[in-house]
Design a protein around this nucleic acid. Sequence first.
DNA 1: GAAACTTCCGAAATGGTTTTCGGATCATGT
DNA 2: ACATGATCCGAAAACCATTTCGGAAGTTTC
Lengths: 342, 342
Amino acid sequence: MARAEPHPGKAATLGDVARLAGVSLATASKAINGRDEVAPATRSRVIQAAEQLSFTPNQLARSLLAGRSGTVGLLTGDLEGRFVIPILMGAEDAFGAGQVNVFLCDARGDAIREQHHLKALLNRRVDGIIVVGDRTNPRPSLGDGIPVPVVYAYAPSDDPADVSVVPDNISGGRIATEHLLSTGRRRICHVSGDPTYAAAQDRAVGLRAALATAGLELVGDVMFSDWSEHWGRSAAALLLSQHPDIDGIICGSDLIARGVLDILRDLGKRVPEDVAVIGYDNWEVLATNSRPELTSIDANLQALGRTAAMRIFEALDGAAPASGVQTMPVRLVIRGSTIPRR
Amino acid sequence: MARAEPHPGKAATLGDVARLAGVSLATASKAINGRDEVAPATRSRVIQAAEQLSFTPNQLARSLLAGRSGTVGLLTGDLEGRFVIPILMGAEDAFGAGQVNVFLCDARGDAIREQHHLKALLNRRVDGIIVVGDRTNPRPSLGDGIPVPVVYAYAPSDDPADVSVVPDNISGGRIATEHLLSTGRRRICHVSGDPTYAAAQDRAVGLRAALATAGLELVGDVMFSDWSEHWGRSAAALLLSQHPDIDGIICGSDLIARGVLDILRDLGKRVPEDVAVIGYDNWEVLATNSRPELTSIDANLQALGRTAAMRIFEALDGAAPASGVQTMPVRLVIRGSTIPRR
DNA sequence: GAAACTTCCGAAATGGTTTTCGGATCATGT
DNA sequence: ACATGATCCGAAAACCATTTCGGAAGTTTC
C-alpha cells in the first residue's frame, strides 16, 4: 500500500493561503513578508493559514520577478573532487547557507560537456559562475560573452581580463624551504611532480628564491616526473645514492612525500633526525597517517572558495571587476616529519 | 577600464525575438520549439532572429509553467566528498547531462543545517532529493512530509517506508574472502575499522559466511578499532605475533590495508607470496600506489548514484515506490597484493 | 458636519514562457 | 460565387509571487 500522501499533487500557493485567510493575494504576501501595511490581526490570520497549508513561497516565481535566481554554478573538471569540495564549502560559507544554492557540474575534462553545462547554467539564470580546475595552469577562458560574472578558482583563465583566484605556489615553495632552514637543514633537495604543471614550476621558483636568500643552493636538480608515490620512492632511492648527505627533502605533493618516507625508512634514515621531509597539499588522510606524520603546505582551498564567491558578489553589486590573477596565501602545517616530537 | 559589456543588463526574451521577427510570442515559441503549426519561412525567420539576439529560453519561467524544475537536490553529510562525487557523477549520467542539474548541499553533519538546506531545496522546487551519508548505518529519515521523491544513497533511512540504495557490504565481505580462498589461502584473519559502523559488521558477516561455506574459521577474532592506517599497522604487528602462520588478511578499508602492508614489509613477509592482503573501497590513489598494488573491493558508487537517480525518475513517473533498502552489487578489483605478477 | 488624515486592504501589472483556441487567409471543389 | 477545407498566425490564459497605486473604511480636527 502506498504511504499516505507521499507526493501531494500540488504544493500550496499564496493564492490558497489568501483564500483560506479570507484576504487578497497582496495582503497575504505583505503579511508573510513582514511588511507593515497590514493589521496585526490580519497578519496572524494569514500566518496561521500559511502554516496550516505548510505554505512555502515558490522561489521560481520569486526569482522570475526579481531577476535574480539566488543560484550559482560551479563548473569543474576536477574528477576526484579533492579541490572542488573545499572550494564549494567555502563558497557556501560566503553566500550564507540557504541564501544561495550551488549547481555543481562536472565536465570531466571534456570541453563539449563544459559548453553544455555552461549553457544549461545560463538558461537557469544563475547569478554567477565559478570555474574550478584541477591544476594551476591557465585554462581557456569561457570568453566574455557571458551575461553573469565568472570567477576562475584554482586554475586561472588564460585571459587577463577575467577574474582568477589561485593559491600562491611560489610562496608555498618559499615557506616550505624557510621552515626546513629554520630547523637547521642546509643540504636540501626537491622531488616534484609533473613538470608541465605550473604548480610544480612555481613551487620550485619559490624554493630556489628562499635558498638563494640564505646563500644556499639546491642539492642536485629539481627532480620532476609525476605526482605519484611510486615516483617518490624511485626519486628518494636515486637521491640517497647520489647525495647521501642530504638533510632535507621538499616534496611536490603529499603522495610523493609518502613514497620518500617509505624509502628513507627502508634505508634506515631517521625522519626527522637525519632527514626532514615536507609534503604539499596537506591531504589530511595521507599526512596524518604516515610514519612520522607529515609536515605539509595547505592551500587554504576553503578560503579560496570564499574569496571566489566574494568576487562574484562584488561583480553583482556592480563593483569594478578587479580582473587578473589574485593569489591566495598558503599555510604551513607542521607535523613530525620536520620537527621531532618532544 | 571596464571591459566592453561585461554583464549586459538583460538577456533577450522571447518577446524580443518575436518583435524582431515580426511575429507574435506564440508563433515565436512554436517556431523555436519545433512545433508544426508554423510555416517554414516564418520558422527560419524566427530562428534567425533568435540567433541574432543569442536568445536562450528562461528556464525559470519554463519551470514555473511546467511545474517541474528539472533540478535535483543532493543533500550530503560527507565532509570529504569521497562518496558524494562518484554518486553525483552517476546521477548526472542517469539524468542526462544538461537535462537536469544538481544542487549540491553539504550539511556538514549538522541536522540544523540539513533542515535549512532541505527547506531551501523545496522552495526551489527541486523535482527530487538524493540524501547521501558517509556510512551505511541507518540515518534519520527526513520524514514523509516531503512533496517530492526522496532517495537515500549509501546511508539508508531508518524508516523502511523510504527508498534507500546501499552497497552490498555482506556480499563484499564474501567476495573478498572467496577471492583469497581461490588463491589457496586457508588461514585468514580480518582487520576492520570502527565496530559501530554497520559496514564493518556487514563485511564481517559476509566474510564469516564464506569461510563457513569452505569449512573454515576465522583466525582470531575480527579486530575492530578505527579506519586508519595507524590501526592497520598496530593490528598487523599484533596479528603476526599471535598468529605467525596466517596467509591472508582481509582489511576493512584500503587505508587499513596500507598500514598492514607496511608492517608486513617491515617484518620481512612477502606479499602476496607469504601473505595475501585485500583492502576495501578501491580508493585508487591509495590502492595503485602501494607496494605491491592493492587488491580491493569497489562499491560501484557511480552505479549507485545512477540507480538512485533512476528511483527518483520512477517515483516522478508515478510508479510504485518500491520502498525499502536496495543493495547494489560490489566488484572485486584484483591487483598484486593477492595475485603475484607473472 | 465636513475636511483632512491615517490605516488597512485589493485590483492589477510585472516577469518570461507555453499552450489552447478562435480567427484570418488562401486555395480548392462545385 | 459560395461553401468547404487546410494552413498558419495571434490573442489570451496559465504558472506564482511581489509591488505599486488607488480606494475604502475609520479616526481626528476645526
